[in-house]
C-alpha cells in the first residue's frame, strides 16, 4: 500500500548552511492493514520519514507512493498523531474530534453522529465538553487519536504517541490502540523508542540505522492476536526483544 523507494532527505542548517544528510536511500513498503513499527536511535530520521508520509515534509529525492499515487501533500486518508498531542486548546473534546470533518463542511449533526463511535471507542464519553487543559496527558492523547480517526483514514501515522505518558497509562494505551486497530482495520505506522512497545503492537518491526538513515533490519513478529499483557513474559517475546536490542545498540555505539 505504501511504497518508499530510495528516499533521501537533506537538511540545510539555518545558521551555518551546512547540509546534513538525514535519510539516505531508504526503501521500505507497508501492506494494507499491516501494523509496522519503526525503531532506531534518537535523531535518526524516523519522525522525518513519518512527516514525509503525512505529506508535511518533502523528500529531497526518491519516490513515495500510496496505492501507486505519489504523496504530494497532506491528505485525509493519512492521519498523524504526535507525541505532544497538539490539540486545539480553544476547542472542546468534541470540537477537537470533529475538526477534520467540519473542515469538509460536514454538518454539525452529522459530525455529532459520526464522532460518537470514536468518542466511545477511546473511552471519552462524558468528557465531550471538557477543554484539553482540563484533561490528563493520557486523556489528551485519546482525544488526539480520536481526532485522527474521525477523518476515517486508511493510514494512521503515529510519532511516538505514548512517549510522554507514564508507564501504566502507556501500557493501557497500547492495549487500546490494538483494539482500535483490530476494529478499524487501518494501516498503522508507529514510530517509537521502546522496543518492547514495538514488538507488542506490531506485525513487523523496522530498525533504522543512525544518520544517514537506512533500513537496517526488518523483523516479522509472529505473536498471536489479540496480544495480551502477559505476552511480555513469554520466551518468544524475550527473544525478539534481545535480538532487536542488539541491533539498535550497535547503531547507538
Amino acid at each position: 500500500m505504501i511504497d518508499a523507494t530510495n528516499i533521501s532527505k537533506v537538511f540545510n542548517g539555518r545558521k551555518d548552511r551546512k547540509e546534513t544528510l538525514a535519510i539516505s536511500n531508504l526503501t521500505m513498503s507497508v501492506k494494507r492493514n499491516e501494523f509496522v513499527s519503526i525503531v532506531g536511535p534518537s535523531g535518526c530520521g524516523k519522525s522525518t520519514f513519518l512527516l514525509m508520509l503525512a505529506g508535511l515534509e518533502k523528500p529531497t529525492s526518491g519516490n513515495l507512493t500510496i496505492e501507486g499515487a505519489p504523496i504530494l501533500g497532506p491528505g485525509v486518508q493519512r492521519s498523524i498523531v504526535f507525541q505532544e498531542y497538539l490539540l486545539f486548546p480553544w476547542r472542546t473534546v468534541q470540537g477537537n474530534i470533529e475538526f477534520g470533518p467540519r473542515l469538509r463542511k460536514v454538518s454539525k449533526d452529522d459530525c455529532l453522529a459520526d464522532t460518537r463511535d470514536f468518542i466511545e471507542l477511546m473511552g471519552l464519553t462524558g468528557f465531550e465538553h471538557c477543554y484539553p487543559h482540563e484533561l490528563s496527558g493520557g486523556m489528551q492523547q485519546r482525544v488526539a487519536i480520536a481526532r485522527a480517526l474521525a477523518n476515517k483514514p486508511e493510514v494512521l501515522l503515529m510519532d511516538e504517541p505514548f512517549g510522554a505518558l507514564d508507564a501504566l497509562t502507556r501500557e493501557s494505551m497500547q492495549m487500546e490502540l490494538q483494539k482500535i486497530w483490530l476494529q478499524t482495520q487501518c494501516t498503522v505506522l508507529f514510530v517509537t523508542h521502546s522496543i518492547s512497545e514495538a514488538i507488542f503492537l506490531s506485525d513487523r518491526v523496522v530498525v533504522m540505522s543512525k544518520r544517514p538513515a537506512i533500513v537496517k533490519e526488518e523483523l516479522k513478529i509472529a505473536l498471536d492476536r489479540p496480544r495480551q499483557r502477559d505476552m511480555h513474559m513469554t520466551r518468544q517475546f524475550r527473544e525478539y526483544e534481545a535480538y532487536l536490542k542488539n541491533i539498535v545498540w550497535e547503531e547507538v555505539n
Binding site: L51, A54, G55, L56, P74, G75, V76, R78, S79, I80, F82, L86, F88, F99, G100, L103, R104, R147, A148, N151
Partner: peptide, 8 residues
C-alpha cells in the same frame, strides 16, 4: 502541521 494533516 496537525491542522494541515487533518485537511485544513
Amino acid at each position: 502541521m496537525a491542522a494541515q494533516s487533518l485537511g485544513a
